[in-house]
Amino acid sequence: MNTFLSRNRLIVLAYIGMLLLVLITAFFSPGFLSASNLRSTFILASFVGIVALGQTFVIIGGGIDLSIPWVLNSAAVLMTLLCAGQDLPLIWVVPLLLAGGGLIGLLNGAGVALLGVPPIIMTLAANVILQGLILVFTGGTPTPAAPDMIKFLSVGRISGIPVIALIWTALTVLAWLLLSKSAFGRHLYAVGTNVTVARYSGVPTTRTTILTYVISGMTAALGGILLTGYSGVAYLGMGDSYLFTTVAAVAIGGAPILGGSGHYIGTVAGALVLTILTGLLPALNLSSGALLVVYGAVILLTVSIGSETFSEMWASASNRRKRIKEGTENG
C-alpha cells in the first residue's frame, strides 16, 4: 500500500482536495453535512463515477472515449422503450443493453487497435453515428417512464444507504481488483505506458485495448439505465454532459491523459469533487456559468500539479525524475 501511495501522490492530493472542499462546503452551507444531503450528493456522484469507470480504463490504456454520451442516451431510451414501464422485461433488457454498450465499445476498440484510427476520431464518429441511428429509430419521440425497479436501484435505499452507492462501491472494488490485482491490469498499464514495449513483452496489446473500450461502453450503458431511474424518464441529451464530466473526473483523479498511470480510486475522488462543487455553488449564490469556470479552473489546477514541470520541481530534492529524463540519454 505504501508504494501505491508514494506512486500515486496525485490521488492522495485529490482526496485531500476533496476533504478541503467538504469542509468549505460545510462552512458555507451547514446543511451540507446532513444525512439527506450527503445521500443525494452520493447518488449524483455515483452516476458520474460509474460512467467514468470505463473512461478511466480507456485513458489509462492511452485512449479516450468520446462516444459515452450517446451510448448512455441510447441505453436510457431503449431501456424505457423496451420495458414500457414494466419491471419484468428488465431481466432481458438490461443484459441486452449492457451487451449493446459492450458491442459499441468493441467496434471502437477494433477501429483503434486493428485499423489504427485515432481514438478521438473513432469514438467521435461512433458517437454521431449512434446519435443519428437512435434518433431515426425512436423518431425523437418521448418514451415511457422508467420501471420501478430501476427507480429503486437509482434512488432507493437499503437501511438508509442508497442502493446506487452500494452498486458504485461494488464496481469500485471490481475496478480496483482489475487494475491492481489482475494480469489484465498489468497489461493495461504496460499498453498505456508504451505499446511497443508491451507488445515486445508478450502482452496481448490488441485485446487489452479493445477490452478497455468494451468496459467503457458497458459502464456508459449502465449509467444510462440507472440515470433514467433518477430522472424518472429517459430523454435524449441526458448524457451530453457526461463526456466532459467523465474526462474531468479522470483528470482530477490524477490520471495523465496520455495513459500509463492513474487509478480508478482517483477517479472516485474526481467524481465526488465535481459533484460537491455542483452543490457548493448554489450555496455561494453562484450561477451555472460560475460553476463551469470553477470546473475549468479545477481541471487546470490538477493537470498543472500533475505536470512534468511541477513533478520535476518536487523531485529535484531527491533528484530522481531528472535521471529518468536525461541521465540515461547522455551517457
Binding site: 479516450i64 495523465p256 491523459i257 463551469l292 475549468g296 479552473a297 487546470l300 493537470v303 505536470s307 512534468e308
Partner: peptide, 15 residues
C-alpha cells in the same frame, strides 16, 4: 507547464 493540449483546452472551453 508542459501540459497536454487536450485537457488544457478542455478546461479553457469550460472557463
Amino acid at each position: 507547464l508542459r501540459l497536454q493540449p487536450f485537457l488544457v483546452t478542455l478546461a479553457g472551453w469550460s472557463i
